[in-house]
Design a protein around this nucleic acid. Structure first.
Lengths: 334, 334
DNA sequence: AACGGTACCGCAAACGATTGCGGAAACGTT
DNA sequence: AACGTTTCCGCAATCGTTTGCGGTACCGTT
């Protein structure tokens, strides 16, 4: 059975398609009698508007694209949920695209967005992305764009972030207060601005405590791009160096460090403390529970999506200045 | 700057839109000279085909919908990745919809699919879903549908599953071989067919080992709908009963049980063994590593998506009989 | 009876792309 | 020179919906 169209209803009732369209949209020009009849027949034929046609006419798609480096079990599920809730509550649908953490992938994703007449874009940048040239085409087409989580230095677009430097600072300060002096920072891809900022927070806390009197010590900095790589790096590292505590900038790395510690140190030996930055899901799974600076992935997604919806509702009539929204977090320890 | 259309190219070159369209699609009726000119201008104007228009004409959307109960950090990320890889490799885009584990949500999601002229559907059923009436409209519209992971007894559609009964059986058999006699099964939502099947596998192993000589013992069956609920239930339970081992039917529950055990039993007390069914990500994070029956979420997604693509490529010319594909898994222990 | 107003509905164009059909050149063949 | 082929391109319809503009009744008023 083919889908019923507006014409089917029209011919069945002996009226014009225009009338049917207006009736279904409750246009005042149409009498209540006709409206009722149209609704009846529509129901009977199981009519549903063809969104593709509507989209063509209105030059919109009802779709919002989410572009992320890669879906992992950490952080992204709650983030996606936060986004999805807002998006679908506002009548949009969510298209999930992965850049594979590569600039080329990001460009390809944006190409798809343009081709599909995507109405709005939420994007977390890949580690390779150093500028926003590839966003300009969409920007020129007046497609609202909100950056979140992983970004670069910029003021052209809205962005929703956490205070990376401060989060790291708080984590490391806590470790120091707890008595740690030999602290190793486990960071992500060196190219990521996020890694650099969290590194800076680490440094600030260390300097403040006079623990880097000989200048930065690269021995106590580990960069890893994946959980597995992190585990093996840390296992090696633990064979060569002494450490009181680890600061891990992400869930992946916290998990990697835990695994390394579990395979390296026996049950009775003294284990190094670990603190991380997390949305709180992983910490409750790990044993002992991971101390962490918590920022909700759900809220981050929620906030970013709401900002996008705000722009979509405003349309191109109002111009809203790009803003950087900082999501608060807090230390969860003990 | 508005998007360039085919007409813009046409008027710039003084040819008709038809010619431009054919030139861009490399139609043999168009001379090489014109083709080249069209391509030049298209490039210059940064022309890109409007997929909405194409979709309207072809009555397709290039979209594949993934409908799942809810995105959690367990299992779904790898699943989505497996699906996304196949889908995008075949020129489709993935729409992620969540049913909130409710039938009403599922119906709403399918409504969206119909309205958007979705080309194919991958669906994992909600716990509430007892029949497939709501799939019939899409089925009638010749939209390929593949069920996966969570399904019900049916033969109308393709489905990609693991052998739930056998997986549970193997887990519990292993526990028994390892010396356990008092084994508690931690299962998910009682309404889920998956829960029932895995329960059956549990029973089979127990009966086979003569551990249920007094008939089924409901004391050693726990049903939980979330990780947190599981944790609190198991904490209570551990206060009242003795147990050698837990069999957890999912990652959520394994994590919940681990948390319960960690809060209940001290370091030196004897801890119950735990085995689960998992894609292997969580087990490597938990300490001690979780024994489990492993089935790859990535492969499951991959397989389901490929089955869908197969049907999409076949079109409605060939009729392919619905099939149930079983993904193999294996015990990972020790 | 003539006129202004309102209520209600249809015509046709538009969104952007595709395609069957037809037609005008240009070519080759006898 | 007449005819058949090929080459190449345009016309117009189509997908399903929306909407500006206009038009016809019918109403009440003077």
């Amino acid at each position: 059975m083919k889908r019923a169209t507006i014409k089917d209803i029209a011919s069945q009732l002996g009226v014009s398609p225009s009338t049917v369209s207006r009736a279904l949209n409750d246009h005042p020009d149409i009498s209540d009698k006709v409206k009722e009849e149209v609704r009846q027949v529509a129901q009977a034929l199981n009519y549903h508007v063809n969104l593709t046609a509507v989209n063509l006419r209105n030059n919109r798609s009802g779709l919002i694209a989410l572009i992320i480096p890669e879906i992992t079990m950490f952080f992204f599920p709650s983030l996606i949920k936060g986004i999805e809730d807002v998006v679908s509550a506002n009548g949009y649908q969510l298209l999930v695209l992965q850049s594979q953490n590569a600039l080329a992938g990001e460009v390809a994703n944006l190409r798809v967005c343009a081709d599909l007449s995507i109405d709005g874009i939420l994007i977390s940048l890949s580690a390779q992305t150093k500028d926003l040239d590839h966003l300009q085409e969409l920007e020129a087409a007046a497609v609202p764009i909100v950056l979140f989580d992983k970004s670069i230095e910029q003021t052209q677009f809205d962005q929703v972030m956490i205070d990376d430097e401060e989060a790291a600072y708080q984590c490391v300060s806590y470790l120091i207060k707890a008595g740690a002096t030999k602290i190793c920072a486990v960071l992500g891809d060196q190219q990521l601005q996020m890694s650099q900022l969290r590194h800076q927070g680490f440094q600030r806390a260390m300097v403040e405590a006079n623990l880097l009197s000989n200048g930065p010590n690269s021995t106590y900095i580990i960069h890893a791009k994946s959980q597995d790589q992190c585990t093996s790096l840390v296992i090696d590292w633990l064979g060569n160096y002494e450490v009181d505590a680890f600061f891990c900038m992400s869930d992946e790395l916290s998990a990697g460090v835990y695994a390394a510690i579990n395979t390296t140190t026996g049950d009775n030996k003294h284990k190094p403390k670990v603190i991380g930055i997390s949305d709180g899901h992983l910490p409750s799974i790990l044993s002992p529970n991971l101390d962490h600076y918590r920022h909700s992935g759900y809220e981050l997604g929620h906030l970013a999506a709401e900002r996008l919806i705000l722009r979509l509702k405003a349309g191109r009539k109002q111009t809203i200045a790009p803003e950087t929204l900082i999501l608060e977090g807090q230390l969860v320890v003990g």
